[in-house]
Write a protein that binds this DNA or RNA. Structure first.
Lengths: 213, 213, 213, 213
DNA sequence: GATGAATGAGGCTTCATTCAT
DNA sequence: GATGAATGAAGCCTCATTCAT
């Protein structure tokens, strides 16, 4: 009897987690297609195959639903990145991979790129959300790589990590935003190597700097 | 009689231009405070001291009003920049000034920064507007500076101008966006020199590159 | 379970049909009182005891609501007429009844008369609506009666059915329109016999024509 | 000096009369094209080549402008009809001409037909206007013809003039309304002879009635 | 626990009318 | 006397959210 009960509870919890994911997936698609304001909760509910009331069971309001999306995506991104980082030695090699992955993840998750860059980040409430913390945590990996580079003496010790992060993330996101808005076919992944070269010139120590990189 | 008529016409035109400016100024403030969606046309009208109907005489609809703001600001920015550029020789010196000015203009026009970075640029329709063309034209100045540097051989000839623009504009706008959202007191102008150093390392030729810049 | 479901569906359908009828009844009253343009959707909603949003669930817009009224009334009129026609033999007798019913229906449904004659029929979009088809279908009954009369040889074979319809319907509606606008107390039903006499003179064959009718 | 003044006053009055006519002509066109509600006063002013304020100098409001149109058209129609009636003897011949003229005037003044049948007559205020009196006066001519026919004994003495007027005017206007709304190419004038035949059967005395008319 | 019908609340936009010039 | 720029006033319609079933 007890076991049965537990099973039921687990099942329910699983269903609920599952349901939450389904809603978030639907929301991501609709927000990407229509934009946050023009997206209708009704439409998200329909796409998710649940009722509107169910959405309001899971999320406080429409904005909460928007900000919950990164809570689903970022852990996935983080674990994928961790996997990609395995077996890579040297800060610069890790940095190159990081650039590649950031672009790769946007390119292969265009809806996500659209929603996070055009709808979540420009929202003034974004910085107060858990989503903001998760994204900070992700870019913290970049800071760690830069620090590792400083230890290795392949990255200049006097580099301001924050400033570096600004131009790395800012640059990548600017590229991605134009790619999204202009609908250009060129793969943004193709920028990875050139970006790496530029950034190594900017951040690298004498040791690391190779004019004919 | 003719003179009288002309005067009248001039006055009317002046009033209309004046009125248009007043509305745009009010709209800039309200959009910056509330965001585009939450901004009320009523509130903009009240702030501008005109009726709502007058706004709709000047602008097709609320979105047209949003996109008309850059058409007022960008020419001002461009002419101010032109003034600042006078008497400066050398592509790197011009580039330093450009960085400074971009940050300076955002810092001293915070409402503009808020509206253009958080409301206009993320809007998918932005790239179809005249505003987009005006902003492109402004960043074209940056490209010209980079080209001049290539001529002087202070900028690497193999630098991809577009990529450079992405990380320069992307970097500056990322800094500004965080400054706006986090409400940090630190002046973004203080980033100018460090940014210049980083970018010269990234873009400069052997001639230009000075480790102890 | 299935039965329950069906019951629920039926109930919902019934409610929806019911609700639609209630709205249409309210709309008919308000349109008749105020005219289409001056009628407020708010007022119709209040009279119907529903919210405005509910009205827009049922009807695309205010004009759709107007043109939906005949879709409710005309089938009622048609079935009532069918009932009245039962047990009547001879085209002229049927024709007399038709005239009587047309006037009777307007007289006893004054709001309907007001809305159809003063608001729906003068609307240029009317002829593109389903409502137009329903009303055509109703007057088709008149054509059938005239045809029957030709078979019987009580109606002239060379009568142009369309022309006859024009002066019958035109005549009745002119009478009704003046009655509505002038607010005269005289029952329009009292015109039935005289109209019949006139029309029989006009349309009847030698057999049917009786000077002392 | 006095003479000069008088001339000036006359000129002004003439101008004003002229101006009033120009506005009414413009209004007729715009009302016919767009319908009363959708017609903009601005548009009428532009078409008339005057300012909106001038329109409000001449007419109390938009509705007054609508009802002023018949005050311009009906006297024209009346005098044209009078001319056409000259040299015609016999009530039935006059009646035939009347039918012809009514259709002819609508056919050659389609804008007028549109405005009077679809916009003025369905307006509840119509019967309180001078326009209504003018139109009554015009149809009075029909009554006079019928009376003349009774004197001549070509029209039945027991004919109810009002009822006859209803089916004559109602019939013609029904034909014209369908012609306007359906945009059929067939000339409505072609109905004149058939209508005459029908009406003579309906109204004519034994003397007048000719089966093989 | 899930539903989805119903709505409350409010925004954008329009246009007849006026009045300062 | 004529203008036409300015507006006051209001209406249609939308949609996130809730609650009775």
């Amino acid at each position: 009897m007890e076991i049965k009960k537990d099973k039921k509870i687990n099942k329910i919890n699983n269903n609920q987690l599952f349901r939450r994911d389904i809603i978030l997936t639907a929301a991501l698609e609709i927000f990407a297609q229509r934009g946050y304001q023009k997206a209708l909760v009704t439409e998200i509910a329909r796409r998710a195959g649940v009722s509107e009331a169910t959405i309001y069971k899971e999320f406080k309001d429409k904005e909460d639903l928007l900000h919950a999306i990164p809570e689903k995506i970022m852990p996935e991104a983080t674990s994928q990145l961790a996997l990609h980082m395995q077996g890579i030695k040297g800060a610069l090699n890790k940095f190159r991979k990081f650039l590649w992955f950031y672009l790769y993840f946007f390119e292969t998750n265009k809806d996500w790129a659209t929603v996070v860059l055009l709808q979540i980040k420009p929202n003034p409430r974004f910085i107060k959300t858990t989503a903001y913390q998760l994204i900070r945590k992700f870019t913290r990996i970049l800071i760690d790589i830069l620090e590792e580079g400083k230890q290795e003496e392949t990255i200049r010790k006097n580099l301001d990590n924050n400033l570096a992060r600004h131009i790395i993330i800012g640059g990548i996101e600017h590229i991605t935003t134009r790619w999204l808005l202009l609908g250009k076919p060129r793969s943004i992944l193709s920028y990875a190597d050139e970006l790496f070269e530029l950034f190594v010139r900017a951040f690298g120590s004498e040791n690391a700097y190779k004019p004919d990189l």
